[in-house]
Amino acid sequence: MRGGKSDMYMRKTLIAALLLAGSAVAMAQESRFGEPATQADIDKRFWSVFPDGTNLPDGQGTAVAGAEIFELQCHACHKNPPDEASEFEPEDPADVLFGGHGTIGTDGALATVGSYWPYSTTVFNYVRRAMPYTSPMSLTNSEYYSITAYLLYKNDIIEEDTVLNKETLPGIKMPNSDGFINAYPEVPEKYRTK
């Protein structure tokens, strides 16, 4: 029997019961085997900062302080900005962090923080969690703001004395911010093979 009177009645009582139960246990519904995560549990594991500034920490810095940090903490593996002469340059450098402006789309594409990265917050997000490569998370938040400022300054994106903090960093527009096309869930027709 489908859609009979008793069927209808059953469904109504069921819905009522569910509503009642729902309101009673909405907050109290327990995880079977998980435990409540405390703020400390979360803070230890959650390092993401977002383009809109979500989860950016306190602290601040400028490129002036960042220059010194770069020399001490980064230069061993990453090349200096092209405008800075130095006796020392790594022989076998990791990713290039400066320059390459206008090369994306050419055969000699050089993707750097300056020429390719679409969001300023990504620089802070990645460097804080992962750099210096052999001692990540070893600097303070202010030092990470400073080194972020240095990378942006040396890519001609901000001034040497621009103060970066959780208010100012998200507002910085990157040169290639319009360079990306969303391919989820499908690659746009234009870039698909026939």
Binding site: W117, T121, T122, N125, Y126
Partner: peptide, 8 residues
Amino acid sequence: VMSRFETS
């Protein structure tokens, strides 16, 4: 989040 691994 626009992490390095979905931008750079």
